[in-house]
Design a protein around this nucleic acid. Sequence first.
DNA 1: ACAAAGGTACGATATAAATCGTAGGTTCAA
DNA 2: TTGAACCTACGATTTATATCGTACCTTTGT
Lengths: 128, 128
Amino acid sequence: MSYTLPTDSELEILQVLWANGLCTVRFVNDKINEHREVGYTSTLKTMQLMMDKNMLDRVIEERTHYYKAALAEETTQKSLLDEFVASTFRGSASSLVLRMLGDGDTNLDEIQKIKAIISEFENQNQNL
Amino acid sequence: MSYTLPTDSELEILQVLWANGLCTVRFVNDKINEHREVGYTSTLKTMQLMMDKNMLDRVIEERTHYYKAALAEETTQKSLLDEFVASTFRGSASSLVLRMLGDGDTNLDEIQKIKAIISEFENQNQNL
DNA sequence: ACAAAGGTACGATATAAATCGTAGGTTCAA
DNA sequence: TTGAACCTACGATTTATATCGTACCTTTGT
């Protein structure tokens, strides 16, 4: 029931957990260090705070602590997206899309996928 | 030439300036206070810091200070969007779109606009 | 002429987030 | 059996941001 959005480093941790399921702190920290340098205890501390906020669940097995995300990826992304559209695009989802396609740097493969998603959406909503 | 992204309250100020052109601090602060309470001097201070960062330009006319955005709306939104897609959707623009259409709460009018943007984009890129 | 109303400048402070050091526990191999 | 290499817990600190108080201007109405 936590409606506070994850912070940047919380999100970074959630991404690892969403992509990998049950993980140790060591694993999460190693993954993050593939992108930027951060100490093990920093990651640990953040994950402990996330436990307090009920953003993570912990399973202890054979004395090893495993963590997994307690927040669903879909709903968390949706909340962050809504917030982002509001603050950056004054609430207009369509201007986000416009900006996304605007300059040529979104890759073609992604654009194909987006078109597919839109058609799919249309088919499922013929009633509109 | 500033490539640091605006913070939340900087963005809030930029939105007012993008939407309204030349503004006084008073005007910007009043606009923001339509949404949340914040003191005049807080807004002033933030705008002065933004001046230091070259995010704003100032015009003094008849002893009144007017400010305008020195950052373009389009490029700033694009930078913020890229950052957001990276951190929240692991770089996948299409999964952002999927999430956007996912549950029924993006309004139909916006969806129509998005479809129009996509078709427009296709027409302008028949070569793809 | 001066008080009230409004402005700017800017230091100080508050708040939130992220980072890390250190203490102390467990495991395991030499 | 001891020390190296792991681990967890957690307080303290750092950093970035946001907020505000206060000093000191200028303008304007009476």
